[in-house]
Design a binder for these strands. Structure first.
Lengths: 149, 149
DNA sequence: GTCAGTGCAAAGCTTTTGCAGCGCG
DNA sequence: CGCGCTGCAAAAGCTTTGCACTGAC
């Protein structure tokens, strides 16, 4: 769960945008490229900051608009953790994972577990609600903070 | 997962507050009583509105302060869904459940599944992160919206 | 040339904080 | 009768929206 740089996803996202009738603006491109480089989820603010560090001057409103569009097209996945929303590439097919949050430092990391997925799928099928997606968030203290505290 | 009114929890919460050295203010009491009456989680704004409907004039700041205190004492459980935080009584021992959100109407309902819990506990134990809690959120379309749409 | 996409600034929500006064213990 | 709790109002995040302008097609 630590793959960096996913050119396949970036291409996939660009193709889906075009297919949905959207033009290829500059802000969307750099947001896609940044997301494709990440190994875990980021907030809109983190994306904005990293883009500016890289020299891409984009407005934060464009970051939000891009993320909103990508989320609606199911190109990115949105996770609500505490007061902010986190975003990450939604890889069609592979790499389905969930998140662990450190209550001390706020750090977010990823994990995956096929048998947990099977449990969730089974529950989802047994409900009257139709279920199209899910999220699991574990909360606790990460190894670093455990050592420090 | 549809038990309304939980006087046991209200008593428990009051006792824990006292034990932690807190005074019994009016705002905290009505928030506890309201939460004890609910069958599912509420946002701070919903709690504020329902209290005023009932004739309890409390400031929304006091609602937030009460919820923050209760969460720290682990008397209530906080769930982040979309842009807002939801709160519900944290029943010691029984009634551990999770939530399903309707993407159409925004409605939140509860479900429980012991085998899902076992899956999560097993994953939690296998991590370097120490894990003290977790949440599962399913997203989809509820039966009513499915019929309507 | 048209209109989607963009950046900036202002506004909207949720949540937190400052402060004076009330009231529990 | 002190200090914790409360309500109001102002402020502090996160996110969305209005608007004029740029640039993709």
């Amino acid at each position: 769960v630590n793959r960096s740089t996913d050119p396949d996803w970036a291409e996939h996202a660009a193709a889906e945008l075009k297919a949905a009738g959207h033009r290829a603006g500059g802000a969307r491109k750099v947001v896609i490229d940044l997301l494709a480089d990440q190994h875990c989820c980021l907030t809109a603010q983190q994306i904005y900051d990293r883009l500016r560090e890289r020299g891409s001057v984009v407005g934060i409103a464009s970051v939000y608009r891009a993320l909103d569009l990508f989320t609606n097209l199911r190109l990115v996945h949105r996770i609500d953790i505490g007061p902010a929303a986190y975003f990450e590439p939604n890889n069609p097919g592979g790499d389905h994972h969930h998140h662990v949050v450190c209550e001390q430092c706020g750090g977010v990391s990823a994990f995956e577990d096929p048998s947990l997925e099977r449990s969730i799928d089974r529950v989802a099928k047994s409900m009257s609600h139709s279920v199209s997606g899910h999220d699991v968030v574990l909360r606790g203290t990460c190894a670093d903070c455990e050592d420090a505290g």
